[in-house]
Design a protein around this nucleic acid. Structure first.
Length: 298
DNA sequence: CTTCCCCCCTGTAAGC
DNA sequence: TGCTTACAGGGGGGAA
């Protein structure tokens, strides 16, 4: 469920607490939270002890915390479906689905616990190498360094990244033989979009999710991209979308964007534009929510 | 190469 | 009432 706006809320909340802080203790409570870490839990703990964090960086739905000792390494994280990164006092009780706890010492804030909790365990943390970006631009939001966590290097930049290439997005649509919604969800074409914001952007742009990507005109593709940016920015300003207790910011608080949804989860309710009932259709092991009147299949 | 399906997992809710 | 089943979905691996 966390998509770009939710992960950015987490990144910006983490940044002031961890940038400049040193890792003083790491506790892995569930090794399933390290599925993307190449070593053991003990290896993860050992690699982090005593190291300083310099920033909190995000590209798409990936987050990483660069480590400051010239080794070009970072703690890389993905929240998956239900991952949370929470800031707690060091004596705070365990979270319900706590998987990893890192205690950091910040020069002005003192000691804080960074807790990774994850109900469905699709998320994970890892110690990862930082590699140069292909285009020389900053790796993501939160750092000017032209470095990206290797586990996030294969995904495209996200639509809020100043180095994002709209022309490449438009070309990828034209080349694809898939449905337009599939391309929106393809993180190697454009990152940060999940099922919620794909449906919202398609509704706003009046594009049917099953429209063949190659049938989308350049003009429509640019309108769709503009709607993607608009919905991501609005959701970010409202603190993200929360349907259940799974998405929260670093203080455990829910966002408000669920009140602003026009399509996602609104099957059976009337379209905010034309009044006709919205529908939900099976789509790639998920669901698509759209207005059959406003979003005609091309 | 591109595209597609299925699996990983847990809590909630619907169905019998 | 209580059990079983379906569903939600990000990403990756492997099959077609």
């Amino acid at each position: 469920m966390p998509e770009l706006p939710e992960v950015e809320v987490v990144r910006s909340g983490l940044e002031p607490a961890v940038a400049g802080a040193a890792v003083v203790a790491v506790e892995v409570l569930d090794p399933r939270a390290l599925t993307r870490h190449p070593g053991t839990a003990a290896d993860f703990e050992g690699r982090l002890a005593g190291r300083a964090i310099t920033a909190a960086v995000r590209r798409g739905k990936f987050l990483w915390l660069p480590l400051d000792d010239g080794a070009d390494e970072a703690i890389v994280g993905h929240l998956g479906m239900s991952g949370q990164l929470l800031l707690r006092s060091v004596d705070a009780p365990r979270e319900r689905h706590e998987r990893i706890r890192m205690v950091v010492d910040h020069p002005s804030h003192g000691e804080l616990a960074v807790v990774f909790a994850d109900q469905r365990t699709f998320g994970s943390l890892a110690v990862d190498a930082l590699v140069p970006t292909g285009d020389g631009a900053a790796g993501g939001r939160g750092s000017a360094a032209p470095l990206v966590a290797s586990q996030a290097a294969h995904i495209a930049r996200d639509p809020l990244d100043p180095a994002f290439r709209p022309d490449a997005f438009v070309r990828a649509l034209a080349r694809s033989r898939s449905a337009v919604k599939r391309v929106l969800l393809d993180q190697t074409v454009v990152s940060g979009i999940g099922n919620i914001y794909a449906d919202e952007a398609l509704w706003a742009a009046r594009v049917h999710p099953e429209t063949s990507a190659s049938a989308v005109s350049t003009r429509t593709a640019n309108r769709l991209l503009a709607e993607v940016r608009a919905v991501l920015q609005k959701a970010l300003a409202e603190g993200g979308t929360s349907f259940d207790a799974q998405y929260v910011n670093v203080n455990g608080q829910a966002g408000y964007f669920a009140h602003s949804l026009h399509a996602y989860g609104r099957q059976g309710q009337s379209c905010d534009r034309c009044g006709r009932p919205l529908v939900r259709e099976a789509f790639a092991n998920r669901g698509s929510h759209y207005c059959p009147r406003c979003q005609r299949r091309q």
